[in-house]
């Protein structure tokens, strides 16, 4: 018969092993991306695969910048993702605030809240062709603006739904106090409500940023050269003639960096945001 302490120790070891396995499953693709970006071409193509390379090179990184003018696409990606994040968060939180309050009749509110989801219920690819034609006719093809417009409209439902939850969680008395204190609706929103939902907004912003940063479908349809973003450039390393794993991995690795920086900058709020509403505080 095992003692309680031994049982607890065994179960702890079991938990660590399980955590380790999950960690390996999650981290392996990242590790593979990173080492492929610094492997020699000969090691990349080697079979069986080289899991622990002994020879390293930075040629893939240099090649990405020298031959592909990656800086320009980097700027495209950054500008598109940041502007989209800003717009979706600003417009989305204002819409969510209006929907969280009772200015509209309940039935209308419910209808609007569901209607907003409509754009999320079909796969984006179904609208790709009409979208392409509309954007082309508007003379916006191959512009960052076309991408920002598209990402903002697709990102808004997500932001509205997330922020709606955060606004509805706020105690009603705080807003009543602000009303009695003489705040206009805009003052209430900017000085009282928004600062209180900042953790939620940070989480929402990270998701919105990642969605825009990684978006591939519309970027590949709506851009050809000037407004191309990084995911499209990466896919360009795959053709019927060649498959340039090294450059693909180098650019892929560099693509992760801004997301990490963005997440680190908002991490202070992120932890609180993910548990927001779990406990009243």
């Amino acid at each position: 018969m095992l003692s309680y302490r031994t049982k607890r120790r065994v179960s702890n070891v079991g938990l660590y092993v399980l955590t380790g396995v999950v960690l390996v499953i999650i981290a392996f693709p990242l590790y593979w991306l990173l080492i492929t970006s610094v492997k020699l071409d000969i090691d990349v193509a080697h079979f069986p695969p080289v899991f622990f390379p002994t020879r390293f090179t930075l040629d893939n990184y240099l090649s990405v910048f020298e031959t592909e003018n990656a800086t320009k696409f980097w700027v495209n990606s950054i500008v598109t993702a940041l502007t989209t994040t800003f717009l979706t968060c600003l417009l989305g939180s204002m819409a969510a605030y209006a929907l969280a309050k009772t200015y509209l009749a309940s039935a209308i509110r419910q209808f609007l809240i569901l209607w907003i989801l409509v754009t999320r219920i079909f796969p984006p690819v179904t609208t790709a062709i009409p979208y392409f034609i509309i954007i082309k006719n508007l003379g916006l093809a191959d512009t960052r603006f076309s991408l920002i417009l598209t990402y903002t409209s697709y990102g808004l439902p997500f932001v509205i739904w997330l922020m709606l939850g955060f606004f509805q969680d706020l105690p009603a008395d705080i807003e009543k106090a602000a009303i009695v204190d003489g705040c206009s609706m805009w003052q209430r929103f900017t000085q009282v409500i928004l600062p209180l939902t900042l953790p939620g907004l940070a989480v929402t912003a990270i998701f919105a940023f990642i969605a825009a940063w990684n978006e591939f479908l519309f970027a590949s349809i709506l851009t050809s050269f000037s407004a191309k973003t990084l995911p499209v450039v990466i896919s360009g390393y795959m053709s019927d003639k060649y498959l340039r794993w090294g450059e693909m991995s180098a650019l892929g690795t560099m693509m992760i960096v801004p997301v990490l920086i963005f997440a680190a900058a908002t991490q202070k709020y992120l932890v609180r945001g993910l548990t927001f509403g779990a406990v009243k505080g």
Binding site: P171, D173, I174, A177, I179, C183
Partner: peptide
Amino acid sequence: PPGKRDIAMVFQSYALYPH
């Protein structure tokens, strides 16, 4: 509107601004 009635209100939940 409430802000123009020259009233002040104290709530059961205190309703202080946490930030």
